[in-house]
């Protein structure tokens, strides 16, 4: 039986968007389960010591999905309820894209697609030069993969043998109506990466894939996570284009809550 993970976080993301009057709910829902797993169960991460030297690094290259990240950081009290309440206000820490100059624990400000992955490559290379064991995790989108820099990075990371780098491709098919990127796993495989393909909303598959990553091999890794934009709200899953940056009204917020609670 399929289980919808992180129901309360999904509701919080909808609420944040409703309250702050801007956001990208479907893009957050497609990456939420993986971000939750990384922070709670996989990355070397100390919420009390966000800059610890041995930490793993996380970069959300598809920055517009950031409310998923905000909701997880909120679970660790890195972001307070007040921070969420203030989102998009003039002096807020939080806005529609994550800002490392304002938010503790955010390594890079992202939002301009195709740039976060390059930053992550450099960080991976820097850590390797310093002979440090930290790992770098970066989430990119399938629509982001329309950017040429993504493929420059695919070539570069393989060339530089960045085995401490793991890209997660949020393959939510958001670019299918415009410029699809089919056969993603084959493409990354051809660039010389270690590739896996999983259901990005299935906890068992998420766990197994990350646990199987071999950071001793010479290749960079990519997990092609097949995800659903708007996962958890059937209407949003169906009409993800219309919901891309839609702000729910009061009734729609109640509807979203209800749909999440009753999701099967």
């Amino acid at each position: 039986m399929k289980i919808l993970l992180n129901k309360e976080l999904r509701k919080k993301i909808a609420w944040m968007t409703w309250h702050s009057k801007e956001g990208h709910i479907p893009s957050a829902y497609s990456i939420l389960d993986i971000i939750h797993f990384l922070y709670h169960d996989f990355m070397k991460f100390d919420p009390k010591n966000l800059t610890m030297e041995e930490r793993d690094f996380f970069i959300l290259s598809k920055g517009h999905g950031c409310s998923a990240l905000y909701s997880v950081l909120n679970q660790f009290d890195i972001l307070t309820e007040n921070d969420l309440l203030e989102k998009n206000n003039e002096k807020a820490k939080l806005a529609t894209h994550p800002d490392s100059t304002k938010i503790p624990g955010i390594e890079a400000s992202t939002g301009s697609l195709g740039n976060g992955i390059g930053f992550a490559l450099g960080l991976s290379l820097g850590l390797k030069i310093k002979k440090m064991k930290n790992r770098v995790f970066v989430i990119i989108g399938d629509a982001e993969s329309n950017e040429g820099t993504v493929w420059e990075c695919a070539l570069l990371a393989s060339h530089l043998k960045l085995n401490n780098l793991c890209v997660i491709l949020d393959n939510n098919h958001s670019c299918d109506p415009t410029l699809p990127v089919p056969d993603a796993q084959k493409k990354w495989d051809a660039f010389g990466w270690e590739t896996q393909e999983i259901d990005g909303h299935n906890l068992d598959e998420i766990k197994k894939s990350f646990q199987s990553l071999n950071f001793n091999s010479s290749k960079p890794k990519i997990i092609v996570a097949n995800t659903i934009k708007g996962k958890g709200v059937p209407e949003m899953e169906e009409n993800y284009g219309a919901w891309h940056s839609k702000v729910p009204n009061d009734n729609e917020l109640k509807y979203i809550y209800n749909e999440i609670d009753n999701y099967e």
């Binding site: 195709g114 740039n115 992955i117 390059g118 930053f119 490559l121 450099g122 960080l123 290379l125 820097g126």
Partner: peptide, 14 residues
């Protein structure tokens, strides 16, 4: 473009 981004990551690494 990627060299610039990559260099920024290297700078971030110290």
């Amino acid at each position: 473009n990627s060299i610039v981004n990559l260099a920024a990551g290297i700078s971030y690494a110290g």
